[in-house]
C-alpha cells in the first residue's frame, strides 16, 4: 500500500505547492487524482516517484510510505527499483531511439526475465507498437507515443504505476483505447495505478476511488461512482464548463463553488 500523509512540498525551498496532501492506494486498485491546471497533481506524483529531487523540490512535511517504509527521501532510481514507476506527462519518449529500444530501456531494472517475453507482453497490450518497433520514436503520433511511454513503464513490471494525464491532447477514440488498456493491464497484472487526469469522465469510469485537488490540497474524495454523481464534479469536470459556450457564466459559478471547497 502506498500512503501519503499530510505531504507538503516546496520547490527551491520557498515555493509551497502541496499544502498537506493525504491519499492512499491499496494494492492492485486504480485510483484517480483529478484537479484543474496547477492544482499540484504532477507535483504529487513526482513527490512519490522521487523525480521531485531532480527539480529542486522537497517534501518538507508529512510522509510518503510504501509498504510501511518511508520513501520520500529516496531518489527516483531507488523508488523505481521498489516497483513504483511514473509515466510522465506529455508522452516523454527518448526521441532518437527506436520504439523497441525505448521498451528495452524500460525493462533495464527488471529482474532477469526473458526480454522477449516482456516485449511480447507490451506488444500484446499495444498491437500498434509491433509494426512500429524499429521506427524512431520521435516521429510517432501523439497517441502512439503515449502508448510507448506506458508500454515502457510496463516493461519494469511495476507494482504501482503513476500515470500523468494519459489523455492529454489525444482524440476521444484514442483516449478510450488507452483507458481500456489501462483497465486490462490493471486487471491482468494486478498493478496499482494512480492516474492523474483533467478528463474526469475517463478516469472516473475506470477507477474505484478518486481524489480531487485544488490549490495543493485534496478538497474532495470518495468512490468514483459517487464522485461521478457529485454536482460539483459534474459541473466542473464532466460538463461543458471548460470549453462550453456559456463560459463566462459558468466561470462565475465555478469560482463561487471552488471557494466553498477550500
Amino acid at each position: 500500500m502506498l500512503k501519503l500523509s499530510n505531504v507538503e512540498v516546496k520547490y527551491a525551498g520557498v515555493i509551497l505547492v502541496l499544502r498537506g496532501v493525504s491519499l492512499e492506494i491499496r494494492g492492485g486498485k486504480i485510483v484517480a487524482l483529478l484537479g484543474s491546471n496547477g492544482a499540484g497533481k504532477t507535483t504529487t506524483l513526482k513527490s512519490i516517484s522521487g523525480l521531485l529531487h531532480t527539480e529542486l523540490g522537497e517534501v518538507t512535511a508529512g510522509t510518503i510510505e510504501y509498504d510501511g517504509q518511508r520513501i520520500d527521501k529516496l531518489g527516483p532510481e531507488e523508488v523505481a527499483k521498489k516497483g513504483i514507476i511514473q509515466v510522465m506527462e506529455g508522452r516523454q519518449v527518448l526521441e532518437h531511439l527506436t520504439v523497441e529500444e525505448n521498451l528495452r530501456l524500460g525493462g533495464y531494472i527488471r529482474k532477469k526475465k526473458s526480454l522477449k517475453q516482456d516485449l511480447d507482453m507490451v506488444y500484446g497490450y499495444f498491437p500498434k507498437l509491433t509494426r512500429l518497433r524499429n521506427s524512431t520514436s520521435g516521429y510517432l503520433s501523439g497517441g502512439e507515443q503515449q502508448m510507448l511511454a506506458m508500454g515502457r513503464a510496463m516493461m519494469a513490471h511495476p507494482k504501482i504505476m503513476l500515470l500523468d494525464e494519459p489523455s492529454m491532447g489525444l482524440a476521444p477514440l484514442v483516449v478510450e483505447e488507452i483507458y481500456a488498456i489501462i483497465e486490462r493491464f490493471n486487471a491482468e497484472e494486478a498493478t496499482g495505478i494512480l492516474v492523474v487526469e483533467q478528463n474526469a469522465r475517463a478516469a472516473l469510469a475506470v477507477s474505484e476511488f478518486a481524489y480531487v485537488m485544488e490549490n495543493g490540497r485534496v478538497v474532495l474524495d470518495g468512490s468514483s461512482a459517487k464522485l461521478a454523481e457529485n454536482e460539483d464534479i459534474k459541473e466542473f469536470y464532466l460538463g461543458l464548463s471548460k470549453f462550453g459556450e456559456k463560459r463566462s457564466y459558468r466561470d462565475v459559478k465555478h469560482y463561487k463553488r471552488r471557494k466553498r471547497w477550500l
Binding site: P76, A80, I85, L97, E101
Partner: peptide, 17 residues
C-alpha cells in the same frame, strides 16, 4: 543503450530507475 538514453533526457531515464 542506457548511455544513449541518458543522452536524450535525464529525467525520463531516471523515471525508469
Amino acid at each position: 543503450l542506457a548511455m544513449r538514453g541518458v543522452a536524450e533526457g535525464h529525467q525520463i531515464v531516471q523515471s525508469m530507475g
